[in-house]
C-alpha cells in the first residue's frame, strides 16, 4: 500500500525540458519511478531525458495517450498556477508542485478550484513525495531512504532529508515521506497526511516535522490526540528563532498564542507525541515506541 504514490503511479512531468525538470526527472527514473510523459508547450513530439520520455504540448494530450495519473510540476512561479489548473482540468487526480515563490493569492484560487474538482494537491514549494521502493516524485534524494514501517510528513525540505538520513542510519526505515511545503497556502496539510498514514496498514508509526509560524502543528497535535492510534514522534525547528517581525495587529489576532516552537512542542507533547530536541533523537524515540 503506502500512500499517494507507488510503483503503479504513471507520472507526468510538467516542465520536463527545463533544467530542473530534466535533472530531477532523470533522478526519478533512476529511482524507478514510471515517468510516462512530459509536457512542455511547443515541444510536443520530442523526447526528453536522453530520449526516454515522450513530450506533449498539453497535459490533455499526454493523459489521452499515456494514461498518466499523477503530475509533478517544475515550471516557473509565474506559470505554475496555470500548470496546476491544466493538470486538474485534464483529469489528473494527484498534482505535486515543486515550484517555489508562487504568489499567495494565486495559490488561494488554485487551491480552492482543485479542491472543488476533487484533485489532491501537494505543495507548492515542497520537496515532493517518496514511497520507498515504489516511486519518488519530486526532489527528495533517493538514496537517503531505507524501506521500513515509518511514515513521515514535513513542512520543510533539507530538514526532512536530515531526519530521514538519521532514521536510515539508525536502521529505522520508511513507508512514504511527504513534504507538504512551507507556503502560507498549501494543497495538503499535516492533518490530511496524518489521516492517510493513520489509515495505511503498512505504516506503524509516524514522524512529523514542523517549524515555527502558523498553527498547523497545533492543529495536527489536536488531530493526533483525537484520531491517531499509532505512535507519533516530532521535531519542531526554530526554538532559537528571534521573535517574529509580525504582520501588524491582524497577524497576532489570527494566530492567538500559536506559532512559537514552544507552543507547538507543548501542544504535541500534550497530545502524547514524543518530541525530539534534535533530529538525531528521532530514531530512538521511535524505538521507544516499539518500532522495529
Amino acid at each position: 500500500m503506502s500512500i499517494l504514490v507507488g510503483a503503479q503511479t504513471r507520472l507526468l512531468v510538467q516542465g520536463i525540458t527545463g533544467r530542473e525538470g530534466e535533472f530531477h526527472s532523470r533522478a526519478m527514473l533512476e529511482y524507478g519511478t514510471q515517468i510516462v510523459a512530459g509536457v512542455t508547450p511547443g515541444k510536443g513530439g520530442q523526447a526528453a531525458v536522453d530520449g526516454r520520455v515522450p513530450v506533449f504540448d498539453t497535459v490533455a494530450d499526454a493523459v489521452a495517450q499515456t494514461g498518466a495519473d499523477a503530475a509533478c510540476i517544475f515550471v516557473p512561479a509565474a506559470f505554475a498556477p496555470d500548470a496546476m489548473l491544466e493538470a486538474a482540468d485534464a483529469g489528473i487526480p494527484l498534482v505535486i508542485c515543486i515550484t517555489e515563490g508562487i504568489p499567495a493569492l494565486d495559490m488561494l484560487r488554485v487551491h480552492h478550484v482543485l479542491r472543488a474538482q476533487g484533485v489532491r494537491l501537494i505543495g507548492p514549494n515542497c520537496p515532493g513525495v517518496t514511497t520507498v521502493g515504489g516511486a519518488k516524485v519530486g526532489i527528495i534524494p533517493g538514496d537517503i531512504h531505507r524501506a521500513g514501517p515509518v511514515g513521515l510528513v514535513s513542512r520543510s525540505g533539507t530538514l526532512t532529508y536530515e531526519v530521514v538520513q538519521a532514521m536510515t542510519d539508525a536502521g529505522v526505515g520508511q513507508t512514504t515521506c511527504v513534504g507538504i511545503g512551507g507556503d502560507p497556502i498549501v494543497g495538503t496539510t499535516f492533518i490530511d497526511v496524518l489521516q492517510m498514514l493513520n489509515a495505511d496498514p503498512k505504516t506503524e508509526a509516524i514522524v512529523l516535522i514542523g517549524e515555527i509560524g502558523g498553527d498547523e502543528e497545533e492543529r495536527a497535535a489536536d488531530y493526533c490526540a483525537r484520531e491517531v492510534r499509532k505512535p507519533v514522534a516530532a521535531f519542531i525547528a526554530g526554538r532559537t528563532a528571534p521573535p517574529g517581525r509580525r504582520m501588524g495587529h491582524a497577524g497576532a489576532i489570527i494566530s492567538g498564542g500559536a506559532g512559537t516552537a514552544e507552543s507547538k512542542r507543548q501542544a504535541l507533547q500534550a497530545a502524547g507525541v514524543r518530541v525530539a530536541d534534535s533530529p538525531s533523537q528521532i530514531p530512538a524515540l521511535l524505538r521507544d515506541a516499539g518500532v522495529r
Binding site: 533539507t158 526554538r239 532559537t240
Partner: peptide
C-alpha cells in the same frame, strides 16, 4: 541550505 535546516542548526548550536 534550506530554512528549516538552518533553524535546526541554530537550535543545536544553542543546545
Amino acid at each position: 541550505n534550506g530554512a528549516g535546516l538552518a533553524m535546526t542548526t541554530m537550535d543545536l548550536v544553542k543546545l
